[in-house]
């Protein structure tokens, strides 16, 4: 990143090659619309590019990247919810687990969707983005002990949900926009 901030194109190409898929996965696991996930991935890299000159190596680049991605995701969620609440244009975007009911990993996604939002976010950051407890704490602005306890609770809940016999699957209703997505 330091080389990139000094203008090295090759450095950026390497960063992009290394993190494009994890970052896309970060958005893809949190958003129902793949196109939106692609768009936010692009936006995150653009922000990294624009702020390269101001980059200070105070943490791992991975943490820096996910912090930017998390802010962009949060802003996107707020925009979506605000639009849905005030203007009533469309329903807020659903988590992928609800949308992709035909997928083979339905049980895992369904179980994740039943977790509380903070616990789910901590669990996703730990399991898929491989962030340490302290990195998650910095990102979510929570104490490390809180992160650990919430993570344990989320894992225990997930374990119980996955261990329980699967309920009779009800046909999932899709909205028009979700079907297009």
């Amino acid at each position: 990143m330091l080389a990139f901030s000094q203008g090295s194109t090759e450095a950026f190409a390497e960063l992009f090659g290394r993190y494009k898929q994890p970052l896309y996965g970060f958005f893809r696991r949190r958003l129902g619309d793949p196109a939106r996930a692609e768009e936010l991935t692009q936006e995150t890299f653009l922000v990294v590019l624009r702020s390269a000159s101001r980059y200070e190596p105070r943490a791992l680049f991975r943490t820096y990247l996910y912090a930017i991605g998390f802010k962009i995701l949060r802003a996107h969620r707020h925009r979506t919810v605000l639009r849905a609440t005030i203007l009533g244009l469309r329903k807020p975007e659903q988590a992928p687990s609800v949308l992709e009911a035909h997928d083979a990993n339905l049980a895992v996604r369904e179980a994740l969707s039943r977790l509380d939002s903070i616990g789910r976010e901590i669990l996703l950051l730990r399991e898929f983005e491989q962030l340490s407890y302290s990195e998650i704490a910095d990102l979510l602005r929570l104490p490390v002990n809180t992160v650990r306890s919430r993570l344990f609770r989320a894992r225990a809940t997930l374990r119980d949900i996955l261990a329980a016999p699967a309920p009779q699957a009800a046909p999932t209703k899709f909205t028009e926009s979700e079907e297009h997505a």
């Binding site: 992009f16 896309y24 696991r29 049980a107 895992v108």
Partner: peptide
């Protein structure tokens, strides 16, 4: 075991068109 179950959730690869579009944007803006 829970971790292993979670690990089965894989994500499709980032489409190449996104990558090329992003690189074009980067070239235009930088």
């Amino acid at each position: 075991n829970t971790q292993r179950q979670l690990a089965t959730w894989s994500v499709d690869a980032l489409p190449l068109r996104v990558e090329s579009a992003l690189l074009q944007k980067l070239e235009r803006q930088n």
